[in-house]
């Protein structure tokens, strides 16, 4: 650190005496230091958990809490009756969006629900118009939209570009795709919150005591900002996709047997996807496991 400062000093001295050599200073110009540190932290985290992990049996969850709280172990037993597997996502503040991304694309890949693809595309176009009306220049969001739509097309089978399940996992771990899709969801969420700011205002005031716009700028659009109920409601509403969240926390119910709290986020709009495969009618096909501060994907039996 000190060396770098010294170099900076020298660089500046040169800068005044000869303008040409001033351009060598550029090396010291960025906040390379902090960026490097950041990426080191991320890389370490990345070694432990990729953006999207492998599917693991639910028993690995129990193993995590082996010597932990009995309430949690009881709850995991309850979960074990309904769910067969868990897929972990990296705890980088984007886990909700990343879990949602993988879960949704995997659903389309497995069900080949073309009607749902058409339905969501229309909603995506609505979101695009929302952002335009809010004054976002096209160039600031169109890449993210295009990349999501590309993934959506690619999970539909029968084309040269079609993805296998392994390729979908691979892409979800590729930062240049995964982060772009996450950012797409952040744009959609931010647009929805601002479009219906009157509806969201009370929630946001309760959370952060900031205006709707400030909230979007500070807690929705920046990468790595964790998601709250507000984000989930907005994303679910904007795309018209129901989401179930199972809560694995220490809260216990007094009325006898242990149960796991859950909440279904059902979009306000009328055009729900038909649940064409796997799950029962009217229940969400995306199920996330929430542990305080983190979301992973759950697979029902």
């Amino acid at each position: 650190m000190q060396n770098e400062e010294q170099a900076l000093e020298d660089g500046k001295f040169e800068a005044v005496t000869s303008p040409v050599s001033a351009f060598d200073v550029w090396a010291n110009f960025g906040d390379d230091n902090t960026m490097q540190e950041e990426s080191v932290v991320q890389a370490e985290e990345g070694k432990k958990v990729p953006f999207v992990g492998d599917k693991e049996p639910l028993s690995t969850l129990a193993a995590e809490y082996e010597s932990g709280s009995p309430i949690l172990l009881e709850k995991i037993k309850v979960l074990d009756k309904q769910y067969s597997a868990i897929r972990r996502t990296r705890g980088d503040g984007n886990c909700f969006f990343r879990s949602f991304m993988f879960s949704y694309l995997e659903h389309i890949l497995q069900c080949q629900d073309l009607a749902e693809v058409e339905r969501i595309k229309m909603n995506v176009e609505e979101c695009r118009k929302t952002l335009q009306k809010l004054g976002y220049p096209d160039l600031t969001f169109e890449d993210f939209f295009a990349l999501f739509l590309e993934q959506l097309e690619d999970v539909i089978q029968g084309k040269e570009t079609s993805l296998s399940h392994d390729e979908l996992v691979f892409r979800s771990r590729d930062q240049s795709i995964s982060d772009y899709v996450v950012m797409f969801f952040r744009f959609v969420t931010s647009g929805e919150i601002q479009k219906r700011s009157e509806f969201f205002e009370p929630f946001i005031l309760g959370l952060t005591n900031s205006t709707v716009e400030q909230f979007c700028k500070s807690s929705v659009e920046p990468m790595g900002e964790e998601s709250d109920h507000v984000h989930i409601i907005a994303l679910s509403d904007a795309l018209g996709i129901p989401i179930r969240v199972m809560y694995l926390d220490r809260s216990s119910c007094d009325t006898g047997g242990v149960s796991v709290n859950h909440h279904d986020f059902i979009p306000a709009a009328g055009d729900l996807p038909r649940t064409s495969c796997g799950s029962e009618a009217s229940s969400p096909f995306i199920t996330l496991l929430y542990r305080p501060g983190h979301y992973d994907i759950l697979y029902p039996k």
């Binding site: 600031t140 969001f141 950012m183 400030q214 700028k217 500070s218 659009e221 920046p222 990468m223």
Partner: peptide
């Protein structure tokens, strides 16, 4: 960002 100064976001250019 006047809220969290460290936050740049992709919607800026």
């Amino acid at each position: 960002s006047n809220h969290h100064p460290e936050h740049w976001q992709p919607s800026w250019s």
